[in-house]
Simulated scan of single mutants.
Amino acid sequence: MAYGPLMAKAMSSAHDRPMLALGLRLVATVLFSVMLLLVKLTGERNIALPETLFFRQALPALSIFGWLAARGQIGRLRTQRPWIHARRALIGGTGMFLTLGVVRLLPLAEATILGFTTPIFAVILSALFLKEKVGPWRWTAVIMGLLGVVVIAGPDTTSLPPFGVAVGIGAAFMVALVTIQVRDLGRTEEPITVVFYFSAFSAPVLALGLIGQDLGHDAVGWAMLAGIGISGLFAQIAMTASLRFGSVSSVIVVDYIQLAWATFWGWLIFNRLPPATTWLGAPIIIGASLLIAWREHLLARARERAPLAA
């Protein structure tokens, strides 16, 4: 779930439907929170992360193909951009490995908050690689966000290990790249096509991670793995569709609802509420990303008015 200056390089969608985009994004946040909860629970049951990743990708690919085949609509998977899908799968697969991995290393709330640093990395990437001029407002937001990460990490590394924080930041970085790919593909491909190729390209590679793994799970374990695949499938379709029908800046606020869900699951399932450092750092990170989104909105409006003025 990324947003920021890199997104300004993409053309706006010709199918903007803001309310539909907001609704889809809300559904995606709920489903993603359920998926991450199940990932953490499978970790508690000592189910290996590579196996979790495989089922996360294999089940959506098989489900989509089977559903389209039953309806005689396999043609909907036809694409003129296979290499773009492959590149998206490579970047997205790496991001997914980090995103699911951090959930096993950190509490749900803290792992979710670190994901909100995505726009901060979008600003840095745009300055380094796109040579975009970044003004004082966005650099201030970058500093704010990094300060928020420091506050959340806190002095006590026993409750929030540095390695887990590093994985969470890496996941946010990769998500910044993934969203650019999704927005670009969404202009020419259906959401279901984007999701299918992401899963279909990455599942065979992830299958290598099953070698040597103990696959003897009970019914609950298999149900959790199935739930990860199903919730991930519909969450990804909803997120991809939200970017097809609306700009990232129009759905940004909805993303933060995922923090409420993560906190709720952490309290209900694991009897854990975030410590004071998390409550202090979270508003700083969220405020920084909202500041970036506000500046992006103003810059986008200025670009739209420029041709009219000319």
Rank of each mutant, 00 (worst) to 15 (best):
L208I: 15
I169P: 00
W222K: 07
L215C: 00
F270E: 10
L233Y: 03
A238C: 04
V254P: 02
A171R: 01
R138Y: 12
I269M: 07
F196D: 09
L225N: 04
F198M: 05
F234E: 02
A172T: 04
L177K: 03
L259W: 06
T193N: 09
Y256I: 15
Q236I: 08
F173N: 04
G145E: 08
V167P: 01
N271H: 14
A260V: 15
T278C: 00
S202I: 15
P191E: 07
W279Y: 15
I228W: 14
G145D: 09
A141N: 08
V195C: 03
F198I: 03
S231N: 07
A223V: 11
A238M: 01
F270K: 08
L208C: 10
L273I: 10
R138N: 05
Q236C: 01
Y197F: 13
A200S: 11
W137G: 07
L273Y: 05
A166S: 13
V205Y: 12
Q213D: 03
P275E: 14
H217K: 07
L243R: 05
I257T: 13
Y197W: 14
W279N: 11
A226P: 02
S159C: 02
A141S: 06
L273W: 11
L273D: 04
I211M: 00
I180E: 06
F234V: 13
V251H: 04
L210T: 12
L206Y: 10
V167I: 14
P155K: 09
S247N: 12
A262G: 02
V248W: 01
L210P: 06
P275C: 01
L206Q: 09
R187D: 02
I269L: 04
Q181N: 07
T157G: 02
R272K: 08
W137D: 08
V175E: 03
F245C: 05
H217L: 15
V149W: 00
I152M: 00
T277S: 13
E189D: 09
S231W: 13
L177H: 03
V178H: 04
T240I: 03
I143S: 15
